[in-house]
């Protein structure tokens, strides 16, 4: 894809705003539409765009699939772990009131933490799925499509 200079330039312009937008959707999700699921997908989409332009090997170089597999499990464990922590603190599973003195703050903390877990799992799963499919592909010329 070395000859696609327009694609390379446009992707270079697009990827940083995509990553920032994903973080905005993740951490502003309590105030505007969005949350972990959407943020994770947008975050993964930025890396997929990079891979579409620069090739799958360049992507594997910056995000090793093994690390992604670990991250996808860690995200789910952050969610479930929050539930276990609240249980140990004497509340029901995922009863966020245990997380802070002020009940409203406790709820907000709980939501931010579990949404972070959701975002982590969704982003790494989407990216791993893409790598799993794309790394099996034989090399395709543009004309093959």
């Amino acid at each position: 894809m070395e000859h696609h200079s327009i694609l390379r330039v446009v992707s270079k312009l697009l990827i940083p705003p995509m990553l920032v937008f994903a973080l905005y959707v993740q951490f502003h999700g309590e105030y505007s539409p969005g949350g972990g699921f959407q943020a994770g997908v947008v975050f993964a989409a930025a890396f997929i765009l990079y891979s579409l332009v620069h090739g799958i090997d360049a992507l594997i170089k910056i995000v090793p699939p093994r690390a992604l597999h670990v991250f996808s499990a860690v995200g789910a464990l952050i969610f479930a772990g929050t539930g276990v922590v609240t249980m140990l603190l004497g509340e029901p599973f995922l009863g966020y009131y245990a997380l802070a003195e002020n009940p409203v703050h406790a709820q907000e903390w709980g939501i931010v933490i579990v949404e972070f877990g959701v975002g982590m799992t969704v982003a790494s799963v989407m990216l791993s799925l893409f790598i799993a499919f794309a790394s099996h592909n034989p090399r395709l010329d543009d004309k093959d499509w």
Partner: peptide, 18 residues
Amino acid sequence: EIGIPNVVAAVLASYRGF
């Protein structure tokens, strides 16, 4: 109870967290 404007996020992550 939760004090955030996005009710969808509140339902998703708190009321229906499980």
